[in-house]
Nucleic acid binder design. Sequence first.
DNA 1: GTCTCAGTAGAACAAGAGTTCGAAATTATC
DNA 2: GATAATTTCGAACTCTTGTTCTACTGAGAC
Lengths: 212, 212
Amino acid sequence: MKMLSSKQQQILSFMRRFREGKDYPPTVRDILRGCGISSTSVVDYNLKILEREGYIRRDREVSRGIEMLDKTQRRMVRVPLIGYIAAGEPVPVPTSDTWEAEPLDTVDVSSELVRGKEKVYALKVKGTSMIDALINDGDIVLMQQANTAENGEMVAAWLKKDGETTLKKLYRERNRIRLQPANVQMKPIYADPKNVEVQGKVIGVIRQLSTS
Amino acid sequence: MKMLSSKQQQILSFMRRFREGKDYPPTVRDILRGCGISSTSVVDYNLKILEREGYIRRDREVSRGIEMLDKTQRRMVRVPLIGYIAAGEPVPVPTSDTWEAEPLDTVDVSSELVRGKEKVYALKVKGTSMIDALINDGDIVLMQQANTAENGEMVAAWLKKDGETTLKKLYRERNRIRLQPANVQMKPIYADPKNVEVQGKVIGVIRQLSTS
DNA sequence: GTCTCAGTAGAACAAGAGTTCGAAATTATC
DNA sequence: GATAATTTCGAACTCTTGTTCTACTGAGAC
C-alpha cells in the first residue's frame, strides 16, 4: 500500500466534499474542475491508482460510477417501530405487511447493531417493569422475529398463566425453562415449557437520556 | 397532493432497491429497464410528476441527478470511542486531539440520538458496576463533554474520596449533591459537592445482545 | 360521435461522460 | 548527465444519458 500523492488526496477530499451536498458521486469532469486539473486523463490516471490501492471502487463505463470505500458512509438500517412493550400484555408481533407497507414510525440503527439479521423490528418500552432486564421506561428494544430461541438468547417471553411479558435469557433444562434476568444480582425464575411462549429475540437496546 | 399511480410507486420502489446495491442513483434508462417501461419519455413524464409532488428532486441536465427526498435524512453521526468506563477509575476525558485526529475506534449512531450535540464521545462499559444505572457490561455509553450539569441530568461522576466512578442523575440540594440511580427501586446517595467531579453527561446507551 | 385528458411510444438530438492514445513534461534513480 | 519511471497534456472517439417532439392509445365527459 503506497503513499497517496497530494493530488490523489485532493481528489479523495473533493469527492467527500462533493457528497456532502449532492446525492450522487462526481463525474470525472467534476473532479477535474473541482481540483483544478486540466485533463480528464489525469483524473482517470489517478482514479485508477485510487482503485488499485483500495480507496474507491469503480463501475466501468458507468457515469458517476465511483464508490468511496473508506469511512465516508457505513450503512444505516431503517427498522419499523411497531408498538409498545409492557409487562401486562403480549408484545406486538410483526405481521407480513410490517415488512411491506410503510410503517407508522421507524428507528434508524447502525448496521452493526442489526448485523444483517432478517425481520428486525423495534418496540418502545412502557413502564419500568423491565428493570430487572436493565431496561427502562422509554427505551427502544430491537427485536428479531422468532418463535423459538437457542439457549442463552435473550427473548421476550409471554408467561401465559401469569399473563405477563418478560425479557430474560432463556435456558432449557430437563423439564423446565430457566429464565435468567440480565441483572446478575437477581435470581432466575423457572417455568413450565408449556407456560412459556417466545415472542421474539432481543438483539439490542437503545436508550436516549432526556435532557430535562 | 395527489395519489401516486402504481407506475410512480413502482419507480420509487425501484429507486430504493437500486440504492441498496449501488452508491449512485439510477439513470432514466436504468428505471426504464428496472420497471419494464418501454420509453424514456414515460419515465421522464412520471419523474416530473414525482418531482412536482415532492417525492424527489432532480438536477436538470445532470446524469443520475435524482435525489430521493424521503430517505435523505437518514444521516448518521460518527462518534469516537475513546476508552472504557469502569467503577474503579475516572472515565477517559476527551482531549483536543480527540476531535481532530483519526480516532482508534468509532461508533456509528443515528443523528436522532445525538440531537446535534457537540463534543459527543463514546465509552465502553467494563464490568457490572453500573447495574444500578441500568447499564451492563459491554454496553456503549454515549457521553457529552462537560464539567458541570443541570439538575436532573445523568452524569458520570467521580467521587474523589471513594475513588469511584458512578453514573447517576445529579441534583443540587442546599449544601449537598443528591445522586439518584436510574433504577427507581434504588435509593439515592448524597455527597459533598467538593467530593463530586462531573466528568461528562450521559446522553445515551446502546446495548448489543450477543448471540452467544 | 368528438373532444378532452392522462398516459404511452418511438425516434432523434445534443450535451454529458468514460475511455484511449501518443507524446510531452516532470521527477526519481543510478 | 543519462535513463527510467511517473505524471501530465490534449485531443479524439464512442457510448451514455437527459431532453424534446410528434404521434398514438384509451377512457371518460358532453
